[in-house]
Write a protein that binds this DNA or RNA. Structure first.
Lengths: 156, 156
DNA sequence: CGTGAATCTTAGCCATGGCTTATTTTATGA
DNA sequence: TCATAAAATAAGCCATGGCTAAGATTCACG
């Protein structure tokens, strides 16, 4: 029985490979989600999403932003005429809403467990893409618990 | 005052850009950390780390694994002779230890808040790279709290 | 001890997502 | 209106991290 000679690998190769595969999948969607979320924010706060603002807020050069926007357009998340601002398609808007919802849950969860706001802002940006639906639901439950604790009398 | 015409962008462009930059930095280290952690696990459980096992557990082809291992070697995390197994350098071992420690904290934190083990296994794989030290410390505190709750009398 | 299977490497492909430099287009204001 | 500044695009670079197909090496066993 070789498997007992030293216990360290708890997972089977398959389940471990599946976990990594899942992470890779998440990565593929990350940029897309971050961009549509940001574009939606820009539209709501500034009235339109300009490439220059996207680039600034992503912290990358305009050409880099432009290339990714082109991919988003190719994949049906945004539309934009040359030299004009960027619009979300229905598909893009839907994804943006979903992403922001997740982002908010993660952010509020971190606050609820005592993470300082500035740190929670930073961390939630990275974490949001890697939280499963099941874990997200638990996050929500805990947010609610904390809310109930601090304001016990708000039934209905 | 343009900034009040619609509130949605809570963060300044700079801090938002910094958060994304931080995520990109984390991504750069992700593969490295996952590999050294896995290699360390393989060495401890099987006695050595073979490329074929790394590839299997990462869920990728051998040539892909080989290419990444070459990068890790270039960057001083591992050593390996052609057609021989893979060893961690001191630098690699140190990183592996740190990574597993983080991974464990995230994993046990998820368990502590009620995430099922199989989900916690999957999620912790993706989350570990995006949790700041500050948040990680809070995770540890909560793990300890839950432990105290379920076993109140273990002072010393 | 030699051969076939397993393992590993090489070569070459692709997409993503960064970058710079240079050019084109648009917008602004004197 | 027209010159200049700002914004966007184009072209071309690089690294990462996937892949397949094909070749080299090692290992194990008959």
């Amino acid at each position: 029985m070789k498997s007992t000679e030293n216990e360290r690998l708890l997972q089977t190769p398959d389940s471990q490979a599946a976990a990594f595969e899942r992470v890779r999948q998440a990565h593929q969607m990350e940029a897309t989600e971050d961009y549509v979320e940001l574009i939606d924010d820009l539209i709501h706060s500034l009235g339109e999403a300009r490439l220059v603002d996207v680039a600034e807020r992503m912290g990358i050069s305009q050409p880099s932003a432009s290339k990714t926007i082109a991919r988003l357009q190719r994949d049906g998340f945004v539309t934009s005429e040359p030299y004009r601002s960027i619009f979300l398609t229905e598909k893009g808007k839907t994804l943006a809403d979903r992403s922001r919802a997740r982002h908010d849950v993660v952010f509020r969860f971190l606050l609820a467990i005592g993470v300082p706001e500035s740190v929670a802002e930073q961390d939630s940006e990275g974490l949001e893409h890697h939280v499963s639906d099941e874990t997200l639901a638990i996050f929500e439950r805990i947010i609610q618990q904390k809310k109930d604790e601090s304001a016990p009398d708000e039934s209905s």
